[in-house]
Every structure is written in C-alpha cells, then in structure tokens.
Write a protein that binds this DNA or RNA. Structure first.
Lengths: 185, 185
DNA sequence: TGCATCATGTAATCAGTTACATGATTTT
DNA sequence: AAAATCATGTAACTGATTACATGATGCA
C-alpha cells in the first residue's frame, strides 16, 4: 500500500502529469517501485478525490493538454504520517531462485543461458546507474551546503548500485555451480 | 505467475500437505517467494484439477488427517517447460527506499530509527542463513559425488547471504547520510 | 504511409491479503 | 484454563496486470 506514497514523493520532487509519472516509474523511482500508467491514473484519481493532490490543466501547443498534479497539504501530511509509522521489510520475489532450485529436477546446465540473460540485465542496469551517478552526483558538494533531497537520492542510488553489483557477483557463482553439472563434466 | 512453480519445486524436494508447504514458505522457499496458506490451498486445488499433483489422504493418530501432495507427470513437464522459457528479472519493491527519498521533505533524522529496525531484521536473517548454512552445508562434499539438489540449494542460500550482507552495509551508509541532517549537525 | 511519442482513460481478469471459521491435541 | 500447534478451508476485498480504446503530432 505505498504506490500513493511513491507518487507523493515523486510529485514533491517535481510536479507532473500521470504520463510523466509513468515515465519516471520506468526510470529512477521504478528501480525500487514499479507501476504502469493504468495503475497511476487510477490512484491519482483517488488521491485527487482525497485532496492529496491538486490538479492544474496545462494547455500545450502541438501536443495534447495535460493535467499537472502537485502535492496538496493533506498529501504532505499523509506522507509525514506514513514516514513515522513502521513498515515491514518487503518480501522478495526472485523467480530465478525458484528456477535454480528447480533445475535440480531437470537439466541444470540448460539454465546457464537464462542466468546469463539475467546477469546481462543487471550489468546493463549497473552501467545505467553509474552513468546517472556521475551525471547527477559527480561534482563535489557545492561548498558546505547539504541538500537533503540530493543527498538522499544519491544514497538510494548507491543502494541500487550495491544491489546490481551483488547480483552480478552472485550470478557468476550460480553459473559456475550450474556448469559443474554439465553432461560429461 | 510462479507460485505454482515454487510449489512444484518444493513438492519435488519433498512431498507434503498444504499446511507443511505454508510453513516452508515461511522459511527456506519463503526467502525468495512468499505465500500464505490461503493462497497455497487455492493454488493446490487448481493444480490438482490440472493433474499437476497427486493427492493421498494420510490418516494421522492424535492429529487431524492431512492431504499429502506430490508432483505428477504433467506437473513435472510444466516445470520443465517453465524452466526453459525466459522470465524477466522481478521488479523490486522497496518501500524503505521510497521513505528515504521522502524523508527529504520531512525530518530526515527521524527516519534513523526505522532504518535501524530494518537493519536489525536483515542482521537477524543473515544470522539465520549462516546457521542454516553450517548446519546443512557445513561438511565437505561427500567424496567426489555431486548432488545437484543440494548444491543448487546452497547456491540459492549463498544469494540470500550476499543479499543480507549488501543490505546491512547499505543501511549503514543510509544511517550515516541521514545523520548528516540532524538538527544542529 | 507507417511508426513512435505524447496523453488519457476503461474493462476484464488475475494475484495477493485480510478476516472469518472450525475443531482436535498438546504444552504451559 | 489458556495458549499454541496442526490442519483445512471460505469470503470479501484490494492491488496489479493485460487488453482494449482514442486521437493528435512529428519523424523517417
């Protein structure tokens, strides 16, 4: 139950339309919280009727008009309330782990290709995060001033980087393990 | 759409009742795929009507009878088919990351307690995994024989261990970052 | 002419969670 | 006497995914 909160954070960082939010959920925020545009439009409607967000019709020339959403007072309060209430660590869902254990009952080596594919995805994501890091956080801090928004975004990004590095290393391990069951090995 | 597959893998490792599966999903398998007993009973019923599993009524003395499920041929085939078809890396859901970015719009240091709580959970899980590792995989391999089931279970467990270590280290980083915004710091 | 992007939505279905319900045995 | 464990389920609800639907502009 935190898509609302993810949307609030994103709109506080920068107001935008449902479409823009959907694109952000494909990038930055989407790295730790996914949502499709259908979901976002539905939730935005609920948030609007709960007065968590304000809407502003923005006419555009050469493009369809858009509805720009921004966070209203009750939305900010809802976010504060959620921040101070404990939430449980999320349950993980790794179908690749299910496959690895399942491979014991089929041909383990046949899974190597799939593991390599996943590893490639993680390698790509890592490269993407690192590029984003040097683009957005490459400069040394502007004198002594601390910008909480910027520093905390960076901390989350470092988490993504650590996660991808961990996965790449673990999948090396998995590939080596699977290879030990190659027919004739 | 892989709860069925997680159940198939678990039943191949050892046949059991819905209740027993539910408990396994609280431990071992549950580390990378969660499910409640309600969900499991529902899916088992579907799998039974699809002939993926066989059921055997096991009378028990001093306890309610149970239905022991085991994997049938079509179930094994369904698992093989799934193993050889590509699946996308799972989307991550980290509400703590949403909270960290959200903290920029409230009191960042107020989140330290919550981060510590999460870190404690990961520390406990790590200890639990490491205990399981030395219990189940502590001995050197029984002569030269490779047991795929055992080796692959171990590889998945090593993934869990790597994940918890990564999280603990990252949450140290996050705590330090949040502390920089302490009022008067 | 066709495809991609911008922009918004509805409808149907599937998966997952929470609450409710029962009843025996075993442990504190 | 109460609480925990074993064992199985139904019902209601919420959340997420997939498919369908529209229509303009801009680019190749």
């Amino acid at each position: 139950m935190a898509l609302e909160h993810a949307i609030l954070v994103s709109l506080l960082e920068k107001p935008g339309s449902g479409y823009e939010l959907a694109r952000r959920f494909e990038r930055s925020i989407g790295y730790f919280w996914t949502a499709t545009h259908q979901q976002i439009y539905r939730v935005l409607k609920r948030m609007e009727s709960d007065r968590w967000v304000d809407v502003r019709e923005v006419p555009q020339y050469g493009r369809p008009d858009k509805k720009e959403y921004s966070v209203a007072r009750p939305g900010r309060e809802a976010l504060s309330a959620w921040l101070s209430e404990p939430t449980e660590p999320e349950s993980v869902r790794h179908d690749l782990a299910v496959k690895i254990r399942g491979a014991a009952f089929a041909d383990p080596a046949a899974l190597i290709g799939e593991v390599e594919r996943h590893q490639q995805t993680h390698t790509d994501r890592l490269a993407h995060y690192l590029a984003g890091e040097s683009r957005d956080f490459g400069d040394p801090p502007t004198d002594g001033l601390l910008d909480a928004e910027r520093e905390l975004q960076h901390a989350v990004l470092r988490g993504g980087i650590a996660y991808e590095r961990m996965m790449i290393a673990w999948l090396d391990d998995v590939r080596a393990t699977l290879a030990r069951f190659e027919t004739g090995g």
